[in-house]
């Protein structure tokens, strides 16, 4: 592996190294990509740790899963499926924007961005709708740990999406104001990657939050909780 080869170098020996020179815009892309990788690692760890605490909590006797019985709200989570579709379309919009920006079709890229923002906002509104429905059904934040986790997970995920929207707006405004064509392409590309990542996180959360008690038990046993 490259990393181990690096660690095996002997810097005390005088050696002529190859020096690759790249231009500034390429370096900007590299910087953004590296920072994003680490950011996604941080976000990934946050959700991973929440998930571990959740799985452990599912095995306590007072935990009442939100799915598994006909009267439970997420046994048939239609609204969540709609929301998932919205987030997927948001990601597809951004992917389209990314490809268009790469091919120098800037009007198409803007359309992609607008589609991305619209469907992402729709996802957030949809999530809020689920909150109000749950609340109306009496599944309030403190009445059961399963509810607490549902609100917590969706809130944290939603905040990450909002953060992404702020970054996307920044990239878009920069593009409109300065017409920074090269920057748009790299900025949109980073945003698209972030969106896809949060979509995958949402799929995992969706599966986790709507599982039945038996599934939790199996996972917990596999994990040794």
């Amino acid at each position: 592996m490259n990393f181990f080869r690096t660690l095996g170098e002997k810097p005390w020996l005088a050696q002529a190294g190859e020096i690759a020179v790249i231009n500034n815009s390429e370096q900007n892309i590299l910087k953004g990509k590296t920072a994003l990788k680490f950011l996604l690692a941080v976000v990934g760890v946050i959700f991973f740790l929440f998930t571990v605490t959740f799985l452990s909590r599912t095995q306590f006797p007072d935990f009442m899963a939100l799915s598994g019985e006909p009267w439970q709200p997420f046994t048939n989570p239609v609204q969540l499926w709609y929301n998932t579709a919205a987030l997927l379309l948001g990601g597809i919009g951004l992917q389209g924007a990314k490809l268009s920006a790469k091919a120098n079709h800037f009007n198409k890229a803007l359309v992609g961005i607008i589609i991305g923002i619209f469907f992402t906002l729709l996802f957030l509104v949809g999530q809020l709708l689920v909150w109000t429905q749950l609340y109306a059904l009496g599944y309030v934040l403190t009445s059961n740990p399963a509810n607490s986790y549902f609100y917590l997970f969706t809130a944290v995920h939603g905040l990450h999406i909002l953060g992404g929207l702020v970054a996307l707006s920044y990239v878009t405004f920069q593009f409109i104001r300065k017409n920074g064509v090269a920057r748009l392409s790299s900025g949109i590309s980073l945003c698209a990657t972030y969106w896809h990542f949060l979509f995958v996180v949402w799929l995992l959360l969706f599966a986790l939050l709507t599982s039945s008690p038996e599934t939790y038990k199996t996972i917990a046993q596999l994990c040794g909780f």
Partner: peptide, 22 residues
């Protein structure tokens, strides 16, 4: 986190010519 992303990215992407990791 804001500072940390900066530190790691600077070390990985902004080293002078000839400054290998080792």
């Amino acid at each position: 986190t804001m500072g940390g992303l900066n530190y790691v990215t600077t070390v990985l992407q902004a080293r002078a010519r000839g400054m290998s990791l080792m």
